[in-house]
Computed example of a mutant assay.
Amino acid sequence: MVSATHRDLETMVAQGAFREDFYYRLKGLILRTPALAERREDVALLAPRFLVDASRHRPLRLTRWHGWLPRIGRAMSANSGRW
């Protein structure tokens, strides 16, 4: 099983906000990675993949070559809080 969270589960267990038995079942291997907001230089590397994935759900309508870059920039800015 793979799971992810942005919360400090150890602290939550100590506070009684997360079940201890469940925490130890999930614990296994912990791999900590910094949030994308802390790795802004990686956005340019990941953006093409995000755009392909997003276009599968909501196709981008690119009518003119010069119009697509600002649109992508706006889409990335609008979704920056989610990354």
Rank of each mutant, 00 (worst) to 15 (best):
M12V: 08
Y23K: 11
I72W: 04
Y23A: 13
P59G: 00
W83N: 05
V43T: 04
L9H: 06
G28Y: 03
R39H: 02
M76E: 03
G67A: 05
R19T: 06
Y23N: 07
P70T: 05
I30F: 10
L31V: 15
L31N: 03
T63M: 08
R74F: 09
E38L: 10
D42V: 01
Y24R: 14
R39T: 09
A37V: 01
R39I: 11
G28E: 12
W65M: 08
T63R: 14
A35L: 12
I72M: 06
E20G: 11
P59V: 02
A75N: 00
R7M: 13
L36K: 07
S77Y: 00
S55M: 08
M76K: 09
Y24G: 13
R71C: 02
L51G: 09
P34N: 10
G73E: 07
L29W: 10
N79C: 10
V52G: 03
T5V: 02
S55R: 05
T5H: 08
A75F: 12
M1R: 09
S80W: 03
A4N: 09
A78F: 03
M1W: 11
S55D: 07
A35F: 02
L9F: 04
M1D: 05
G67T: 01
L62G: 06
D42A: 04
L62K: 01
S55P: 08
P70E: 03
L45C: 08
H57M: 13
R82W: 08
D8L: 13
G16S: 12
L26T: 09
L60Q: 00
D53H: 12
A47E: 00
D42I: 04
R49T: 14
L26W: 05
D53W: 03
D53P: 01
L26P: 05
L45M: 10
A35Y: 00
R49P: 03
L29K: 15
A44D: 12
R64K: 15
S80H: 08
P34W: 06
L29V: 15
R32S: 14
L46Y: 08
V52N: 11
A78W: 02
G73V: 01
W68D: 06
A17W: 08
E10P: 05
R25P: 06
W65Y: 14
R49N: 07
L29H: 14
M1G: 10
E20N: 14
P59E: 00
H6L: 07
Y23M: 01
D53G: 00
H6Q: 11
P70R: 06
T33E: 09
G16R: 04
S77R: 15
E20K: 15
R74A: 15
V13K: 02
F50L: 14
G16V: 04
R25H: 14
T33F: 14
P34F: 02
I30E: 15
E10M: 10
